[in-house]
Simulated scan of single mutants.
Amino acid sequence: MDPAPLRTLFAALPDHEAEDIVCRALEDIAAKLDYLQNGRTTGAFSEISAPAKRLAAVAEQIGLTEVALVARHSSNAAEMQCGVALGATLARLERAFDAAVSHVWDFRHYSH
């Protein structure tokens, strides 16, 4: 995690507004991750790459560098239409996202 985007966000806005933005970003990532998993389950490789790239962009905006990296790897696996690689990268993406959520809230707790 790169804490710089969160520091900038919380320095520029009142805490409640910054927290709303972070919550919306995390909810957006979670929804996109669910969409990617559904696409993998149905074998819709062509419907996975673009949402994975959008997920990466949202993650980068709030400093979730590992999540962004793995989302791009998931996009690549979908473009290659490799079900094994896609399954592995999406599982890694879920783990990275779960860890990132904890890091974001730990950051908020310890930054005050």
Score class of each variant (00 low, 15 high):
Ala77His: 05
Phe97His: 11
Pro3Ser: 12
Ala4Leu: 15
Cys23Gly: 03
Ala56Trp: 05
Ser75Pro: 01
Ala96Glu: 08
Asp106Thr: 12
Met1Gln: 04
His112Gly: 05
Ala91Tyr: 02
Glu19Gly: 10
Thr65Gly: 08
Leu36Met: 11
Pro51His: 10
Ala57His: 06
Pro5Ile: 10
Leu9Pro: 02
Ala30Cys: 08
Glu66Ile: 10
Ser74Lys: 07
Arg24Met: 15
Gly83Gln: 07
Ala56Ser: 15
Gly43Phe: 09
Ala59Trp: 02
Asp2Leu: 12
Gln37Arg: 14
Arg54Met: 14
His112Asn: 03
Val58Ser: 09
Gln61Met: 14
Cys82Thr: 05
Gln37Asp: 06
Glu19Phe: 10
Leu9Gln: 02
His109Asp: 06
Leu13Val: 02
Tyr35Gln: 13
Glu60His: 10
Leu6Cys: 08
Glu17Gln: 13
Ala100Met: 06
Leu69Arg: 15
His109Leu: 14
Thr8Asn: 07
Ala96Phe: 03
Leu86Tyr: 06
Leu13Arg: 08
Ala91Phe: 04
Asp34Cys: 13
Ala100Asn: 03
Thr42Cys: 04
Arg54His: 12
Glu19Gln: 14
Thr8Gly: 01
Asp106Ala: 15
Phe97Trp: 09
Glu66Ser: 14
Ile21Tyr: 10
Met80Glu: 13
Val84Gly: 01
Ala88Asp: 11
Ala50Gly: 00
Gln61Phe: 11
Thr42Asn: 07
Met1Ser: 12
Leu9Ser: 04
Leu55Met: 13
Glu19Tyr: 08
Glu19Ala: 14
Gly43Lys: 05
Pro5Gln: 05
His109Ile: 09
Ala99Pro: 00
Glu60Asn: 13
Gly63Cys: 06
Arg95Gly: 04
Ala71Lys: 01
Lys53Pro: 00
Leu33Ile: 08
Arg72Ile: 11
Asp15Arg: 15
Asp98Asn: 12
Ala30Pro: 01
His16Asn: 07
Glu17Ala: 15
Glu66Val: 13
Glu17Gly: 00
Leu6Tyr: 05
Leu90Arg: 03
Ala44Glu: 09
Ala78Lys: 04
Phe97Glu: 01
Phe97Val: 00
Glu66Met: 12
Lys53His: 15
Glu79Met: 12
Arg95Pro: 00
Leu86Thr: 02
Leu93Ala: 02
Ala56Glu: 03
Ala71His: 03
Trp105Cys: 02
